[in-house]
Design a protein around this nucleic acid. Sequence first.
DNA 1: ACAAAGTTGTGTTCATTGTGTTCACGCTCA
DNA 2: TGAGCGTGAACACAATGAACACAACTTTGT
Lengths: 223, 223
Amino acid sequence: MIKVLIVDDDFMVARIHSGFVAQMPGFTVSGVAHTGAQALAEVRRLRPDLVLLDIHLPDISGLELLGQLRAAAPEIDVLVISAAREADTVRQALRGGIVHYLMKPFTQADLHQRLDHYQRTYRSLESADTADQSDVDAVFGMSGTDKPLPKGCSAETMVRVQTALRSAEADSSALEVGELLGLSRVSARRYLEYLNELGQVQVELRYGSGRPERRYRWQGPRS
Amino acid sequence: MIKVLIVDDDFMVARIHSGFVAQMPGFTVSGVAHTGAQALAEVRRLRPDLVLLDIHLPDISGLELLGQLRAAAPEIDVLVISAAREADTVRQALRGGIVHYLMKPFTQADLHQRLDHYQRTYRSLESADTADQSDVDAVFGMSGTDKPLPKGCSAETMVRVQTALRSAEADSSALEVGELLGLSRVSARRYLEYLNELGQVQVELRYGSGRPERRYRWQGPRS
DNA sequence: ACAAAGTTGTGTTCATTGTGTTCACGCTCA
DNA sequence: TGAGCGTGAACACAATGAACACAACTTTGT
């Protein structure tokens, strides 16, 4: 559950945005603050994962508060909400390492899309020990579109196979990957052998009684 | 012309990356530094737009240097280059407001793709007085929810498709949505794929005998 | 020591199911 | 009337999985 602190000087707006967040699966509103000082105190008290931060606060500029929040909680993520359209403000916020900048007024769908992006990219980095290039690319919405898949392989299934391999504790056989994903061994093998060609997996043989079994271990991309 | 400072302790690597940058239209190498101290001095002297920053430097951690570079030149952009795959390193760099994180080893094409993204997104913000949501979305590679309805789709049918999906208990295929609304599969698919682009639905494949079926699940707000 | 049998797994083939594209059709509007 | 749009039938082809021949090992028998 991703804990969110709402920071907005306008009580009504804060309430609306709280409602939006509360309706987003996987997110929960852990608090609301209406000034920069309150926000700092609440960050220290509640330890939220994410702050929805309005730039215009009565006691401090949101951009300045961003730095202070970072100092108070280095692991905090910040999604800036602002009516400000000055490119300079946007640039400063981006250089502050925000996860998004959403311009008011915005719809619930707008916010949900950004929260979803945050959840799928930044938060998956949070729960991982290692990352690879595709994780970073996901943050910036860049897809590895340059590598064409062979005929007979779909992008969606490839992503699922890669994900399964990367989260496996050890190596896996085609049959195991297939069972895990609801695919046949033969289909899983198609993807695994292609990943092998790309150098993204390492193949090892497991010897027993009978023909050796091909097992695949995630090795990360090789350029 | 975007001026780039290369910061890497390995002289050979720095030379290779300089070559990559020099071959990117719109970019010029303004200097090379091999230590953190040199990098700071060169940033002050050369005023580059972008630093290609290797994390592993002999005298300082690249992440720490990032903060110092920001203090010395608040308008500086930083593209991190690193062999580090620890997710924690990646997270810290992202919170430092980097424009990208490229994992070694990478190809020239890899770097050019990121430089191109930087040029089209961050740099266009640099030359603008105002920004709008699509400018921010471009940084994060998101298409936004206000993308106009494509030719061949009617607003009335769009609403009906969205309503059908919203009220579905589970996911639906294009065929099912089409049957429900009295449309053909192909027409329903048009709307569903558009919603997929907008991030309002999630696509999952259902495997069986034969080609997998694309199924669409509503992911936007319920209300 | 070597061959044969048994066991386990692979890799290929092709049938099945579904997708995605193309373009003709009917309707609306200027 | 002609242009443009929304739609769907038709079709080529894509992505799967079952079935099967056979490969690569281990075990057993001579």
